[in-house]
Design a protein around this nucleic acid. Structure first.
Lengths: 341, 341
DNA sequence: ACCAAAAATGTAATCGATTACATCGTGGAT
DNA sequence: ATCCACGATGTAATCGATTACATTTTTGGT
């Protein structure tokens, strides 16, 4: 193995003062060149640059960050990186962050307050400049109390009462529309498969579901409203099986997440029901997979990428102008009609 | 809005010297207490701890890291965070890293060498202590050349010739077994849907596919071997449609990734073929979704979590003992027979 | 040729920790 | 009483950058 190694000045241990020595100037000048300040003579700049790549110098950002008190790292805390919904939001965040010269430190909290805290400490100790939190608003509450002045924003999940900037959608209205769509197709026995109600969206979508039914003059059936503890396919499949085993099973199911809805499709198939003929299904999010399953899933689309981008922009804005209050904002959703309902 | 703020010592700008002043001791003593050194008297320790939480002190890790030349950050570079396969590996990495007191900085490179480089610079400039790379081995090559001495390891994708520790599976053997399974079910017209051959696994699995066919004395049909440019569902669906439009379409399809295979299922359905009766399908990875689709997917399982855990352990080991050579290792795969083949 | 203003560069303090080394007390051996 | 060893603590250098301020050089006007 011909370990060619790093070509010029051996390893990456070259400091700014080594460069200064090599170039025959002071560290200040080197620093100025490196930071693109206009006040250096072209000739000197060249000498410095020559020294820089003669020695293979690379700046130690730790030192710079210590001095400038900025890390150019943005924390992003998500309950589950594996969920395609969050993955897409993260892409949105990443794209605007990179564009502004920030790196994104992605953390999978599993919606666990303990891990959330430990990650959040990165912000407190200045290892990150700002944070975007997608965790349940109930776990955010604790943070909001003790960390209100720190630069962070909430995405998807938020407490409208808190002084923390946020971006999300109008979950209640969106859920109502979804259920109304089902009603319009003639369904009266409509079930709700909801997730952990620590999530704001879960509570809001339940509200929307109830709004639609009561508006239509229908009675709420408690056993048609089920809560599952996780958002994976299996949870959806189980819930569907359970609903179908009811003496009076529903003829339509509204699941608050596409992953659940896809599990529901599976559960219904196993229970021998055809979709949408026997049971209609409607999901939420419009993840890429939703269009691929059989039948393609009717769902409420969230502008995932934009949610991420907006969150990042909000945060960057807050970082740039620490004083000014950044407003919360809601992005539009859209009902996508496919074959499952 | 009752902005209670951070309770005690105002913001997080308290330094170690402030604590020292408050406690009436020197900074050295405070540092010793904070780092759990045994040489401080219990009485002093208490004074210090009292001062610490009187002022709400939190250590500035930038400063500490500058001094100790360690960031306790591990870089993880993946081609696509949204892919459930990578997501699970990342979980494995994260779990062992956290356990050892490291944070994971997750980077979505999109398999783009430019972004890869820019992230890799975090390592060079000591903002991260080590890195795990899951990008195509062709993009790794460049890194291997110039960054061989830096502490990083390869996961899934690797160059066996390079001096970089790695963990992966025996893709060639795994692919051969998959195709042999198809052969054993009486299929002779077997297609391969492969991904970007910049990936080592793509090249190795193609080899395995060919091995199995030639071992069985079958001729290779060039038009039954298609390469797609991305791993998403749509790519699989398109490829399947294309294959079915052939004058002599295959009776079985081996897709090198479950996401592709799931797209294939969709494509076959659209083309009016039943699975597995008309066409058998076999995937690769065994992502969670594979068991949920209709029909449940036969696939080659990779130990995703273990791959991640092992990669992290390899890296940590390399960090702990910089001198010693860490070997490459292969983990076992397993054929999971479900209904699609 | 001279001087002030402007431009370029250098000096040294600083960010907030760690840690080698120096110093101070105190108790036990002689 | 003297001295030493050792435990506890303090002093100050250090990590590698940025930057206010001081100093030197250049420029241009007369």
């Amino acid at each position: 193995m011909p370990r060619s190694g790093t070509a010029p000045g051996e390893a990456g241990n070259v400091s700014i003062s080594a460069v200064a020595r090599q170039a025959g100037v002071s560290v200040a000048t080197v620093s100025r060149v490196l930071n693109g300040q206009a006040v250096v003579k072209a000739e000197t700049r060249d000498k410095v640059m020559a020294a820089v790549d003669a020695l293979g110098y690379r700046m130690n950002h730790l030192a710079r960050n210590l001095r400038t008190a900025a890390s150019r790292l943005l924390l992003t805390m998500v309950p589950d990186v594996g969920n395609p919904f969050y993955a897409e939001i993260v892409r949105g965040i990443d794209s605007v962050a990179r564009q502004q010269g920030y790196f994104v430190l992605l953390c999978d909290t599993g919606a666990d307050p303990g891990r959330e805290r430990s990650y959040f400490d990165l912000l407190r100790t200045r290892r990150a400049d700002g944070a975007i939190c997608l965790d349940p608003d109930t776990v955010q509450q604790a943070l909001a109390e003790e960390a209100a002045p720190l630069p962070w924003v909430a995405c998807c999940e938020f407490d409208p009462e808190a002084a923390v900037p946020y971006v999300g959608i109008d979950n209640r209205a969106a859920a109502r529309e979804a259920v109304q769509h089902l009603l319009a197709r003639g369904h009266h026995r409509i079930a709700l498969i909801n997730s952990d109600e620590r999530f704001l969206y879960a509570r809001q979508r339940r509200q929307g579901y109830r709004d639609a039914l009561t508006d239509a003059g229908l009675r709420l059936h408690p056993e048609w409203q089920v809560n599952v503890r996780s958002l994976d396919f299996a949870a959806g499949a189980e819930a569907a099986a359970w609903l179908m085993a009811l003496p009076e099973p529903p003829s339509a199911i509204f699941a608050v997440s596409d992953t659940l809805a896809i599990g529901v499709l599976r559960g219904l198939r196993d229970a021998g029901r055809r979709v949408p003929d026997d049971v209609a299904v409607i999901g939420f999010d419009d993840i890429a997979l939703a269009a691929q399953v059989d039948p393609p899933l009717t769902t409420v689309a969230q502008p995932m990428r934009e949610l991420g981008e907006t969150a990042a922009r909000l945060l960057l804005q807050r970082l740039a102008e620490p004083g000014v209050a950044v407003p919360g904002m809601l992005l539009p959703h859209r009902l996508i009609c496919r074959a499952s309902a």
